[in-house]
Amino acid sequence: MTAAASNERWLVGLDIDGTVLHEDGTLDPRVVAEVKRVRDLGHEVMPATGRSVSMTLPVIDRLGISPAFAVCANGAIVMRRDAEAPVGYLRDRVETFDPREVLTTIRSHLSGASFAVEDAEGLFRFTGDFPEGALAAGRRQVDFEELLAAPATRVVVLSPGHAIEDFLEVVERMGLHKVSYNVGWTAWLDIAPDGVNKGTGMEYVRERLGIRRDHVLVIGDGRNDIDMFEWAAEGGGVALAMGQSPEEVRAVATGVTGTDVDGGVASALARYFQG
């Protein structure tokens, strides 16, 4: 199957870390070239990432594209291009939730964990210790009680004292309600508003652009891409897991491409968008 067989526009959603970018943050020139080539064919190529807005826009610049939309914060924030905006994009849709129950529940189960809450403007309020660069530039250390005060686009929990299997077990045992969550490569938990994920963000964009449901291709490598993969596959689209993806991510993909080191995004775009 290739998109070249159709003259209609496709929507291409790309995860960033471990997909577009190597794990060390470097960008393969082959990926840049293929992204631009597919864009020049008339398709909409955009990021679909767990990153905050302030950490997503520089990657768009590095790719040399200006997509109409960008899905950030695992779907909780959708940015729309606007030439009049100070950074070139405006918040088109923002989903928030009350973080109080989630934070107090998790704190009672994971002693010693660090917590961060991202608000609708992209500011992270955090308590505990986060690695340098793990949160957006807009960050402020506060007391735990202050984390409970404002609506959140997401809650981040870091608990490096737990092995990934133990962390998953604790998370399942907590029985979180009315939120969506996924666990990253390490003991890192992202919690979003109920029913919000990369797939819901991409569907919002697809409807806004009027692109056919089966003219969607997404690529990712993490557990936070599972919902997006299921969304793409259920609509007859393409969902490609990077070669280094965990087995549970591969299991819901329609195919697998190369690793980030092998330029998996570049080879996938070259295969599906010939012309």
Rank of each mutant, 00 (worst) to 15 (best):
Y204S: 02
G133K: 13
A152Y: 13
E132F: 12
T200G: 09
S111L: 13
P151A: 09
G199R: 11
A113I: 09
G175W: 14
M174Y: 02
E145V: 03
D143V: 05
F167E: 02
R212N: 09
M174A: 14
G199V: 05
P151N: 07
F167V: 02
D194E: 15
F130D: 04
R206S: 03
P193Y: 13
N182A: 15
G222I: 03
H215A: 05
F126N: 02
D143E: 15
D214G: 02
R139T: 01
L148R: 13
H215F: 03
N182T: 15
F124C: 01
V179G: 09
G138Q: 13
P131E: 11
M174K: 03
G122N: 11
A163D: 15
D143M: 08
I211R: 01
S111I: 04
E203K: 12
W231E: 13
L147N: 04
D227V: 00
L209I: 01
P131N: 08
F144D: 02
D129P: 00
A137P: 00
T153Q: 06
A134G: 09
D227T: 02
V157L: 15
R223H: 10
V196R: 05
S180C: 07
P160L: 12
W185N: 07
E203R: 14
L168I: 03
D143A: 14
G175P: 10
K178V: 01
D129K: 10
L135N: 01
A116Q: 10
D166L: 01
P193D: 15
A137Q: 06
H215P: 00
V155S: 08
